[in-house]
Amino acid sequence: MWDYSEKVKEHFYNPKNAGAAENANATGEVGSLSCGDALRLTLKVDPDSEVILDAGFQTFGCGSAIASSSALTEIIKGMTLDQALEVSNQDIADFLDGLPPEKMHCSVMGREALQAAVADYRGEVWSDDHEEGALVCKCFAIDEVMIEDTIRANNLTSVEEVTNYTKAGGGCSACHEGIENILSRVMAESGEEFVAGGVGSAVAASSPAAASAPAEAAPKTDIKRISTIMRVLEAVRPRLQADGGDCELMDIDGNTIYVNLTGACMGCQMASMTLGGIQQQLIEELGEFVRLVQVEKKADQLVGIGG
């Protein structure tokens, strides 16, 4: 079963504004083929003020699609059309206290239905500019189309680069096989060949692409590097401490950074989000790929447990 928040369940079991709005004067109908969900949003808009007086939804979809629809109608009632257009899919997800990564597209569908309804009201034709692909990276909810487009636009050639540009692959790394496959495919389009880096890669010396890479990614001198890491960690600590948590630097070993992340969100899904989030900031600040690893405080236990 999906790990739905209480708020999602509440809006699924007792959806608000189900059914068509009465005397509606705007309708948006969108669907997502990849998941088979579809949504009709109807609005009653005050012609003078453009305020949304009433909103109703009809949804063919899973629990989170219904909850997202319900949340959307609650959020936009009372807004003007322009205000409503500012509502992002992240706002819908936040209103529901988050959605599982596999289900983020449900909130995207809500936002698109809204755009379609506003376009309908204004006599415009709405066309979808967002193409959705299969979910590749679950840690950061990044889909295939997004990765392909980013590779093409920036001529990316390695998983690390894809992680730096899209975040995909920056968490548990389970999706690296999938990212490598996408790289192989997209690079083949322009006659290039994908060469994997790291352990198990082809012998570096024989590959001109790999040979030229290190110069640019030369690691910063140790002291500068350590102080950058400390600075990023110091910056996030107050936010964690406010929730009764903390994040302490324990050790740095090559591109692995060991921290002791504690507090209210330890052990729950937030812990990985926070770890992932901090890791991403570190990657951006350092300009190199680093991995953030959670360890317990007893640093002496760190060594020699293997096997």
């Binding site: 189900a18 109908e29 969108v30 009709r40 009809q58 063919f60 379609a116 959705e132």
Partner: peptide
């Protein structure tokens, strides 16, 4: 079914595929 755009009252909307034809992403 009460929540479904393909459904209308006590049965499927008349010609359901026609009654509801969303823009697909």
């Amino acid at each position: 079914r009460k929540l479904s755009p393909y459904w209308d009252g006590n049965g499927p909307a008349e010609d359901p595929e026609q009654a509801f034809a969303p823009v697909y992403a």
